[in-house]
């Protein structure tokens, strides 16, 4: 091998190692949802669970996400361009810049390439708190949701699912699975509006007792 060939081979290897170092140090900082307010202006990478996706006329999207371990810690991801769909419950790794918009911190990214799905949601339903559903049921009309709470006022076909002082009416399609008063349960169903009674309820086929 000529000297020049050896030099080229060594440069190739050393150059690759340098690029590895650049890639490592230039990569965004890993952060948790709770740390977002402290990282304004920085490029970060956050693992989070998708709650909702709202498409914009401009071709972008706003994704509401939460911490995988703490559902009350939430933030928004603004995507400049987005043609993919992200489903409720998808565990994603979001990379972007922390910016402040209208007083709220959010993650800004150019496109859906900044969101990498780690694990798709098996249930394809939104995981919510009872108070979220009870306070604003119209926002979730028609959606598949998953809610946990305590069963109260159990009737033949329906019961109240309560938690934290709030409650939502649940109608079971299979009354054989009706829980007993005081059971801690999780239900998965669709938010429906009863035109006759003028109220919202959760139509479910099954309830799982915790």
């Amino acid at each position: 091998m000529r000297k020049i060939d050896l030099f080229i081979a060594i440069f190739a290897v050393l150059g690759t190692i340098c690029l590895g170092a650049i890639s490592h140090f230039a990569s965004p900082e890993e952060a948790k949802v709770s740390q977002i307010p402290l990282l304004e202006g920085k490029a970060v990478e956050i693992e989070c669970v998708v709650r909702q996706m709202h498409r914009l006329d401009s071709g972008g999207a706003i994704i509401s996400a939460r911490d995988p371990k703490n559902g009350s810690q939430r933030f928004s991801i603004f995507l400049e361009q987005c043609s993919s769909d992200f489903d409720f419950g998808d565990l994603v790794r979001a990379t972007g810049k922390v910016v402040k918009y209208n007083g709220e911190f959010e993650l800004y990214a150019l496109s859906e390439k900044s969101l990498h799905i780690i694990r798709e949601s098996a249930s394809k339903s939104a995981s919510l708190w009872v108070w979220e559903l009870a306070n604003n049921p119209g926002e979730y009309l028609g959606m598949a949701v998953e809610v946990s709470g305590v069963a109260n006022d159990c009737g033949k076909y329906s019961f109240m699912l309560e938690s934290g002082g709030c409650g939502i009416s649940v109608k079971l399609q299979e009354p054989e699975h009706m829980p007993v008063e005081g059971d801690d349960i999780s239900v998965r169903g669709q938010v429906i509006f009863d035109q006759e009674c003028f109220r919202y309820y959760l139509g479910v086929s099954d309830a799982v007792i915790d």
Binding site: I8, A9, A12, G15, L19
Partner: peptide, 15 residues
């Protein structure tokens, strides 16, 4: 810099 390194790597197979 990426171009320089990739060029060097690209010259290795014929060598």
């Amino acid at each position: 810099f990426i171009l320089a390194v990739s060029t060097a790597i690209g010259m290795i197979p014929p060598m």
